[in-house]
Design a protein around this nucleic acid. Structure first.
Lengths: 182, 182
DNA sequence: TTACAGGACGAACGATCGTTCTGTATAAAT
DNA sequence: ATTTATACAGAACGATCGTTCGTCCTGTAA
């Protein structure tokens, strides 16, 4: 995962990864069968880590706006933590496969769709509870949050801008009608 | 540019590009010297195309909010046009090099910084004219617009969602306080 | 004591990578 | 008309790519 977050899933090389793991190429690939299966396993592992870091703690908050706020906080904190030295894994994979059909693209799309669904459900609950404007489309809210996190973290990384994630956080809170943090 | 927008700048291969251009490998690389110089030339050409498609028409609008609106409209239209079969070039390059130092990373960072500067200037003008709230940070506005365009277009591509750019457009207009389009 | 499954190894496969060198043909300059 | 420069083809280079092969070692079951 570390290697792929920097070089991309497509940038993983059996030879290099094997030497990084102090294994032989054949010993490594024997675990998965072929490279694509290994890439899918890496992606699945990274998604699990995201869920554990963001969804799991946030799911303890009350449904609706409180949970949405908890998600946003955990999300930004996850991006800030630097668990992946190369930035958000799914964003990297999205860019890599958005124009390249195949199982990996399907896996990435499924993961993004699932996450957007989670966000949309909470946005709808928030709207039904009166915590979001009645004319606000929950799917719009979900898509906007995802776009900000994805695009913002990439821009911050390439610029080397430490304040970027603060801006992302502020924009996400603004998107769901929460007041600035301070 | 077509090839790189799909496979990424790092995914360009001298052999493949040469055969796509019906040239020999040596004939192609002879033009640039080495691969990295060629990649930088491709990136520069893509940036020129972006400027021509987005900034040039928008620069005819009055400074401040009108110009910001023109930029947003042209920007979304540029993303919609599909000039690059693999999506926004600078976003792809940002993800590829955000964790990989070198001249290409520097080029990408410089381009993003320059564009954010353009957006920030117009946001400040809009704020000074009273078209944006006085407590709204122009740099925040610039960063938010960039994040939405970048992250939103990628998400839309990987999901195969045709409405995605409409959502991006709406979110960008919302970010600068403009009313929904209809 | 034997049989066998699983994991990992080193070696090798053909293919492709980026780069370099040499030769030739065309166009420009003298 | 002759020289010079440029553009490109062709061949070859060492390196690395993903994959496959046969072999060995270890641990468990019969």
């Amino acid at each position: 995962m570390d290697l792929a977050s920097v070089e991309g899933l497509e940038g993983i090389t059996i030879g290099r990864l094997a030497s990084e793991l102090a294994m032989s190429k054949s010993g490594l690939i024997g675990r998965f069968g072929d490279k694509e299966t290994m890439q899918r396993a890496v992606l699945a592992a990274a998604i699990d880590r995201f869920i554990a870091a963001v969804w799991q703690p946030a799911s303890r908050a009350a449904p609706g706006l409180p949970r949405l706020e908890a998600i946003v906080d955990a999300w930004v904190e996850h991006l800030r933590s630097g668990v992946f030295p190369g930035g958000c894994f799914v964003t990297t994979a999205s860019v890599e496969y958005d124009a390249r059909p195949g199982p990996l693209r399907d896996d990435v799309a499924a993961a993004v769709k699932r996450w957007l669904g989670v966000l949309e459900v909470q946005a709808r609950r928030a709207r039904d509870a009166g915590d979001l404007p009645a004319d606000r489309d929950p799917a719009d809210v979900a898509f906007e949050l995802h776009s900000l996190a994805s695009g913002g973290s990439v821009a911050g990384r390439v610029l080397g801008d430490d304040e970027a994630l603060d801006r992302v956080h502020a924009a996400m809170r603004r998107a769901i009608g929460l007041p600035p943090l301070n």
